[in-house]
Amino acid sequence: MEIFAPLLQYLISGLTNGAIYALIALGFGIIYNATTIINFAQGEMVMLGALCAISIYHLAPSLPLAFAGAVVLVTCVGLIFERLALSPVKDPTPIALIIITVGGAVLIKGVAMLLWGKEAYNLPPFSGDAPIHLGPATILPQNLWVLGITAIAVAALEAFFRLTLVGKAMRACAYNTRAARLVGIAAGRMVQLSFGISAALGAGAGILIAPLTLGVYDMGTMLGLKGFSAAIIGGLGSMAGGVLGGLVLGVAEALATGFISSGYRDAVAFLLLLLVLFLRPQGLTGGRK
């Protein structure tokens, strides 16, 4: 009982953060599948999502509008980023493209700093902030929103990839781009679409987490790295892997903070990443390769 009481609270905290990591990890995975590159600007989409939602909310205080508006805006940023920075590259080797995404991340962060300044901003929680008691632990409505919307997003993505023609075409590109081209799939379009979906996922993650953590121009970098770790831990490119990796990472961090020491929080994420790379480089769920 002594141990159980805080454990539940750690799990709630860990699963909430883990769900955010999972959304970001999925974004990494989708782009990786379409292009075999890692989009290091993914974390900045999270930041943009949070800050855009906050700005829209200040203009018109309606949370659904802020949510939808921010997702649409950031999706456009993702699409434009792919069109302007990645698709014109003459010799698109993965390493060149990855370096471009790193540059893009720095640029987006810099522009955000100019637009929003260096201060943190508040976004009100979606449905109040009265904690709900759950045995010895408490949970905020916002935690439930994070978990719920993540679950819906994952289910919707899964359905999109399994059931729709476009989703199937994207998967075909992931398995074998050349073969997909030969049967008439516009691979370039699919790449662009993958950037759009990833940006939308990142934006969603940012908006969900903003009421809990505040929105600030430099929040994206660390979240991006954590999401990347989650994607690798779970198995890059696998949907189930991204979700599993995110949740494992979030819970591991919370448990390490709770039971060992709060100083080890970030260390745990990257230690876990190294362990997986050493012992199971294909990730927990196998994935490709």
């Binding site: 905290s13 953590t213 505040l214 929040m219 919370a254 903070t257 709060s262 100083g263 929080r265």
Partner: peptide, 15 residues
């Protein structure tokens, strides 16, 4: 202890 950029201190507070 918490980190400057930490976004969730519930584990520490739970303790």
């Amino acid at each position: 202890v918490f980190g400057e950029k930490d976004t969730d201190m519930t584990p520490q507070l739970t303790k």
